[in-house]
Amino acid sequence: MNTLYVTLPLILVAFSSGLLAAWLMLIARPDRKIEEVLVRIGTVLSLIMIHWLVVMAAIQNQAPVLTPGQVLVFLGVQIWSMHSLLQRKVRQRFFSIFPLTVLTVMMVLGTCLGLQPGADVPASLFGFRSGFHITLSVAGVALLLGSGVFGTAHLILHRQIKGRSFGKWYQNLPSLNDLDRLRGTTLGYGWLLITISVISAMSNLYLNPERDAAMVSHLHPMLTLWFLISLLAAADRFRWLGNRRLAGASLALSCVMLLLIVVSVVEIFTGRFA
């Protein structure tokens, strides 16, 4: 057990930190061959981490959401896996630093907070329905955070092009169009997963109104969030806003969502809902 919850996470933290250091060094000394090797190592890292989480889920008979540490690690791994997947479609170059930093920070925080579930795990976190709802939520959040990060990169590159600043980021970020496409794709899939997750939560409440009564208050901010995400997804789909504004809105939404998620996680694990 210690191997799964303590030793392996520490090894993975070291692995991701090393990879991050290598990417940071690559900014100072660009080298296409080393970049290709690092992309491959990153993909292997994401596969190892997914495998680790699957084993963890099988052992604890629930998705890795039983402690705040597990939620953080679960989110970090999903962000990095999504990035590795997208990297196969669009060469993202130095952009890898953003999700890799998130992964490393989440792994460190998750490991510090503790991954092994104790006796005080809230009962509402067990069962297939909870697992399904939380897993989809975390995956949706990962995608929407990705959308925010792509939006941020879009804004950085936009400023560099407008400001005639032709530095390293100008040279090494994906094109504005690619960033916009990635932002739109992650937003679209994120919206889909969050929508399914909200529907599953509502059907849970409908099927077990007495057991999950406390969840109702948790659902209110989540519904508000879903409304905001839907609005942004519609604005993106029907081009109500220009690319730069969509990028800014994605960043803003990510910040709001992050705040709500943090509050929500704290409330769930302290036994109080919003």
């Binding site: 296409r32 061959k33 092009i161 040279q171 094109s175 504005l176």
Partner: peptide
């Protein structure tokens, strides 16, 4: 060419316009 960026970036106005287009449109 692979291990340094010695060939990176346009060095004439005409090719710079193509470079700028690729930074925006991919």
């Amino acid at each position: 060419r692979h291990r340094t960026q010695i060939s990176r970036g346009a060095v004439s106005v005409a090719s710079a316009s193509v470079e700028m287009a690729t930074r925006i449109f991919g």
